[in-house]
Every structure is written in C-alpha cells, then in structure tokens.
Amino acid sequence: MAFWDYANPTRFLKLVQVLLPWLVGLCVATFAIGLYMAFFTAPEDYQQGDTIRIMYIHVPSAWLCMMCYTVMSISSIGTLVWKHPLADVSAKSAAPIGAAFTFMALVTGSLWGKPMWGTYWEWDARMTSVLVLLIMYLGLMALWRTMDDPIKAGKAAAVLTLVGALNLPIIKFSVDWWNTLHQPASVVRLDGPTIHSSQLWPLLVMALAFTLLFFVLHLMAMRNEVLRRRVRALRMRAASVSRPATASASAQPAE
C-alpha cells in the first residue's frame, strides 16, 4: 500500500520535493482564475450588491476550517491506532493552518455582517460554532507547545482532537438550539437556498484554490516538522555522545 511507503520521513521529504512545485503552480493558477471570476465575471447580487463578493473567500475558508479538522481527526486516528510516524506530524502542522482559516472565516463573516446585518458580530449559530472551533484549535496548539516530547504531545493532542471531533456535532446542535431559542429567525440568512450558476462557479473555483492552498501549506509545514524532529534527535544524540560515560549507549538510533 503506497500510504505505508511514505511512513519513512526521508522518502516523504523526497515526495514533497517533487510534488510541491506542481501544487504551488496549480494553486496560484486556480487563485488567478478564481479571483478573476469573483471580481469580473460574477454578477452582483440583486439584494446584497457587491458585498456578495466576500462570499467567494468567506465560504471557502469556512469550508476549509472544517476540512482541516477532519484531516486532523483522521491523522489522530492514524497516531493512536496505526502509530503511523507521519500522522502526528500531519496533525500538528495542520492545527495552525486550521486556526488561520477559522480566523479568516470569522473576519470575513463579520465584515460581511456589518453591511448586511448592521453589526460586526451577530451571535448567529454558525458564527458562534466557528468561534468555538477557533478556541479548540488554539487550545490544541497550546497543548502541543507545552509538551516538549513530540511523541507524548502527539498522543495527548490526538485524544483531545478525537474528543473534539465527537463533540463538534453536539456543539453545533446545541448552538442551533440556543440560537433558535433566543432569536426567532429574524436575521437575514447569508446564503439563500438557491444560488445562481454564475455565482456558483467562482465559488467552486475559489474553494478548489483554497483547498490547494491548504495542501501546499500543510505539506510545507509537515516538512518543517520532520526537519525539526531531525534537529531534535541529532541534538539529543550529540548531547549523549559528548558525555563520555554514556558514549557506548549512543549507538542506538536516536530518532
């Protein structure tokens, strides 16, 4: 199975080296097309005017912040069940990217909300759930930072990620409940049930561009993490070699 071949970090780095230029090129091209469509070919909305153009970055980033959590959950299963050596690398490097996309979704949502709802922040069910998701991302990053042993930190973060994945639907459900209880459907819904194809295509292209951006950044961050662990292992080996009493024990693999 090809998936297992890349358990070896050195092979993974080689794969990244080959793959990355293509992905970057594709990502830039898709962004160029998507942005062109978003600004020049997509018509303005008859209700929202030009502010509809915020949708082309708001919806993809909101989508990506959930996809990133999915990637982290799958990686966490990989860490706990299969002990795949790259799984916790993947989970760790996805967290800051996910947090950034969540932040982008919140910022664009509130900048869209100001002209539409008249307020920057509405305690709307979706924005509230995304805010909770942001806190979870930041908590996971804090957990990674506070533990210095990457293996132990990886397992702890994996447990928390999976508990969070179990909890996210419950949070979504309860926030929806809370929202309908406190404000009976008065807010303008941002995306109507129907969307015209002239608006749908730019959205899909932008979503693809954001997804490619995520994978580019994720692969680059994973490569950094592999290098960081290599540096850590070498430093520890160097420290054990420099101590003469334990020099004989240094022959064991340091990674």
């Binding site: 804090a142 957990l143 447990v159 928390l160 508990v163 969070g164 909890n167 309860s174």
Partner: peptide
C-alpha cells in the same frame, strides 16, 4: 479528560480550562 491530558504539566490549570471550556458549551446551553 483535560485533567489527564495536562497531568504531566507543572502548571496545567489554565491550559486545562482552555481545553475543557469548548467541550462544556452544550452542557451550559442545555
């Protein structure tokens, strides 16, 4: 869950609160 995740940390109390609060949102709401 938070307590066992932060058990090895010397000052885990604040981190524990940050990790646990999002998970308790549904309970608070209901």
């Amino acid at each position: 869950i938070g307590a066992s995740l932060t058990v090895s940390l010397r000052r885990g109390g604040l981190l524990l609160a940050v990790l646990v609060v999002p998970l308790t949102v549904p309970i608070l709401i209901f």
